[in-house]
Design a protein around this nucleic acid. Sequence first.
DNA 1: TTGTATGCGTTATCAC
DNA 2: GTGATAACGCATACAA
Lengths: 333, 333
Amino acid sequence: MKTTITDVAKHAGVSMKTVSRVLNNEPNVAKATRERVTKAAEELQYRPNLAARGLASSRSYLIALLYDNPNPNYIIQIQRGAIEACRRSGYHLLLEPMTREQASGPNIRSLLSRLGVDGVILTPPLSDYLPLRREMEALGIRYVVVAPGEADNVPSVRMDDAKAATEMATYLIEQGHRDVGFIIGHPDHVSSQKRHEGFVAAMTQAGLAVNDARIMKGDFSFRSGVKAAETLLGDPNDRPTAIFASNDDMAAGVLSVAGRLGIDVPTELSVCGFDNTAIAQIIWPKLTTVAQPIRKMGMKAAEILLDRTSGDEPVSHTLDFEIIVRESTGTPH
Amino acid sequence: MKTTITDVAKHAGVSMKTVSRVLNNEPNVAKATRERVTKAAEELQYRPNLAARGLASSRSYLIALLYDNPNPNYIIQIQRGAIEACRRSGYHLLLEPMTREQASGPNIRSLLSRLGVDGVILTPPLSDYLPLRREMEALGIRYVVVAPGEADNVPSVRMDDAKAATEMATYLIEQGHRDVGFIIGHPDHVSSQKRHEGFVAAMTQAGLAVNDARIMKGDFSFRSGVKAAETLLGDPNDRPTAIFASNDDMAAGVLSVAGRLGIDVPTELSVCGFDNTAIAQIIWPKLTTVAQPIRKMGMKAAEILLDRTSGDEPVSHTLDFEIIVRESTGTPH
DNA sequence: TTGTATGCGTTATCAC
DNA sequence: GTGATAACGCATACAA
């Protein structure tokens, strides 16, 4: 039924060690032998046994993804990227959703050590959860954090929110907009602050005044986008020609208010968001927005974990975002 | 560093076999011995090694979730449920995203057998992908399909779309609506047809005529919802008092048209969707919709896999949906 | 370039 | 009830 490495060895007329060498692409095998073994493995439909391999090498060929209360799209993309990297190295991805409470509870230690995974990926908000990191370090488990708030001295993968916001605002300015409204995100998120800073930087760089009346406070919700837009667009004689919302949900809120007020987008008003979530494409007109390299972050995180050659110095990678121009922005008139 | 079963045995003054017995809750162990072993394991912070256990028992303690082009929210919820069930049994969930092409390619066989998982969960649209199922059967891998189109003779977990649509429509009728519009989903999805059938059944049961002019064809997209609503609501003198869209995206489209036309929801028009996706709560007014028991389906699927006691007869489970009433529906006036 | 012997940590077999 | 001892399938020193 199950063909083992010994069967292959017998079939190829070599020792199991040689088979092992071939299977793991180790050097020092004659070309002819290698081919013979490969062929034998093929014929016997040999598949290495993960458990046996793991036991012998004291590796699990597994890495774990830890997350809490995920934004489904975000976490799915992280997963995609991580899995892609795993497959290239014969690894598999284990899922471990957990609340902050669980992450700090007494069980986390047993959970982590029981897994016996070769590495762990931490996603927000777990990325900034220090007790969890401590635990991993105590257990000697390699880990990479995704999009941490602070630039700690740990392996991490991130995106430059401020730079992205600057670039998006600059795009708006280049389109000819001079009077741009901005809706800030939830005050508890580091990204809110950074995106706001990035926006201000772009305006300043362009020599444009940042009018406080055009800066609204939101909380990342559709509803808060609606409210901000009602204020921003309330006076027909004093409206910005563009509104930059800190995320897509709020931008969608702006769009709905514009529709209600009979303001055509993008001819009378340009609207852009941030995150490139599903709603950006669902809604109409489709949103111009910033796409975070989420999939790539997941991939890179896994790669860092799987790359055993890398030294001990923690590597921090900043990946490129992308400005996605759709139908919700244009030149003012 | 790593405490093994032998360490625990020594510490407790018994043989490793006895420890194994205790750990696996096997019978034939004196109560006192059992306690002594448990205590020793506790003190030594013993954690069983997955790989070793798997090798010896020829089980992997892993089940795999196969999916293709997932709706993020859907798959995340399936994952949550499956993981919950897995944890209760000391299992872990492996993720295997794959396209239909991959699932039918030559690699699938090696991938499946290499995994050595103890079971596989298939989610739509892979649930109805027969070649994949064949492969699993040939390999002798246990599997459960989630929400298959046809009621085959395989273990499955599903929801009754038609019944849910009937119940939702009945709710509308009970609110006093007599003239209800309906937007059909994408023609390629089995659920579209079933939801339509369910709607018609409710109307018929209530003795209400199903006016063809009130039945629109959509494709599950926001845009198609907009178009359907424009037709349905175009004539101020001939409008339905409620619109039932086959999914939330289309319902959101209806909402946006209503907003543009100055039709107040829910006082002048009731709108409801299906699926309870994120947009149902993001948008305003929040959508009345049908919540599929997605998490539970994932959980049930995993349970079926992990329940070795169940006989050979394939079990099909139909789980309960839930009608979620929010702000987008009310009584007509 | 190839082979032999041993061990990884657990479960399973059988004897006591 | 309990305990030796042999698998499980592979990797890894160490030899040859």
